[in-house]
């Protein structure tokens, strides 16, 4: 991971709104061509970070470079190369969806009308309707199509699918895969774990304005616990006393517990002796990763975040 060619480099960025620390020593690096999941609960600073990367907010301290440019000073040059979808899309009520899309594409220069029409069809959008009649999901589609149809190197997507139905989310995953295959870099913020899990090469978890965990999904899993659920002939209660077994409980006749990643071998040796009828072991879900970072530690001052929606 060479620093030199990173698309986004944020280093020790601080940003406060009055007494509220929105970004607290945020460090983030995103490499060319990767889909980077930006995961955190509401109010954790995702949107603020996006808006700093876009150059509409100015960090109090720290350095931010996107394509080697300072987003605050070189906004126009930078925006030639990126497209942005805000978390809460408001459009011009007296324009139609098609007009908004065309306007954005023309502001970026030449564009491919066939690609625009194809995306409109895939997202099943009626471009002739005035945007004031659109639902939140449809407004989001307009912003997404405007961003995806443009030939930009970087996509900043702030909770892009919060208003989309599952069918449209599948389309979204498709087009993001396509964007990735074209070599575009994507920063995708979300609190929808499955989406990030399915799309991202790497994930950064943000909590109270600070990146607490960053790496590929398997990197993160390595640092966490595997969950075991077993049904056994003999009682398994003594497992609870092992040093590397956590949260032992019995659910409907099955023993459920979590094991530190590096001790799985030791637990397996114990389980074999119990006469197992059935066993399920699964890697930690992102919920569990999040729980580890949000559920257990006492939270710092909760950062206020700009337009983010409540969890669906």
């Amino acid at each position: 991971m060479s620093q030199r060619n990173a698309v986004i480099e944020a280093h020790e960025v601080h940003k406060s709104f009055g007494p509220v620390r929105a970004l607290d020593d945020l460090t983030l690096e995103i490499l060319p061509g990767e889909v980077h999941g930006f995961l955190g609960p509401n109010g954790s600073g995702k949107s603020t970070a996006m808006r700093v990367l876009l150059g509409v907010l100015r960090p109090d301290s720290g350095t931010v470079k996107v394509f080697g440019l300072d987003p605050w000073r070189d906004a126009v040059a930078l925006h030639q190369r990126l497209a942005y979808v805000p978390g809460d899309v408001e459009l011009w009520p007296n324009l139609t969806g098609g007009e908004v899309i065309d306007m954005f594409l023309r502001l970026r220069g030449k564009y491919d009308r066939a690609r625009r029409d194809e995306l409109i069809e895939r997202f099943d959008l009626d471009p002739r309707k005035k945007t004031r009649t659109y639902s939140k999901g449809n407004r989001q589609k307009v912003a997404l199509i405007s961003a995806l149809a443009a030939h930009t190197d970087l996509l900043l997507l702030d909770e892009p699918t919060a208003g989309l139905d599952p069918l449209m989310e599948a389309v979204f995953q498709d087009v993001i895969h396509q964007a990735k295959s074209e070599g575009r870099t994507v920063l995708l913020s979300s609190h929808i774990l499955a989406q990030v899990e399915a799309l991202s090469d790497r994930i950064s978890i943000i909590r109270a304005g600070h990146i607490v965990e960053s790496g590929s999904l398997s990197d993160l899993r390595h640092m966490t616990r595997t969950t075991f659920e077993i049904e056994s002939g003999r009682p398994a209660g003594h497992l609870a006393s092992l040093r590397f077994v956590h949260d032992y409980r019995t659910v409907g006749g099955r023993s459920v517990f979590e094991v530190d990643g590096e001790h799985i071998h030791d637990v397996m040796a114990e389980i074999v002796k119990l006469g197992v009828h059935g066993m399920v072991a699964h890697p930690p879900t992102l919920e569990q990763l999040l729980m580890r970072h949000y559920g257990q530690q006492p939270s710092r001052e909760v950062a206020q975040d700009t337009p983010e929606q409540a969890a669906p």
């Binding site: 139609t96 098609g98 908004v100 065309d102 002739r128 309707k129 009649t133």
Partner: peptide, 18 residues
């Protein structure tokens, strides 16, 4: 509700037009 234009007029393609 009346439907509007599917494609924007050329005038809309600039900041001034908007």
């Amino acid at each position: 509700t009346r439907l509007g234009r599917q494609y924007a007029r050329p005038a809309l393609g600039s900041p001034l037009g908007l």
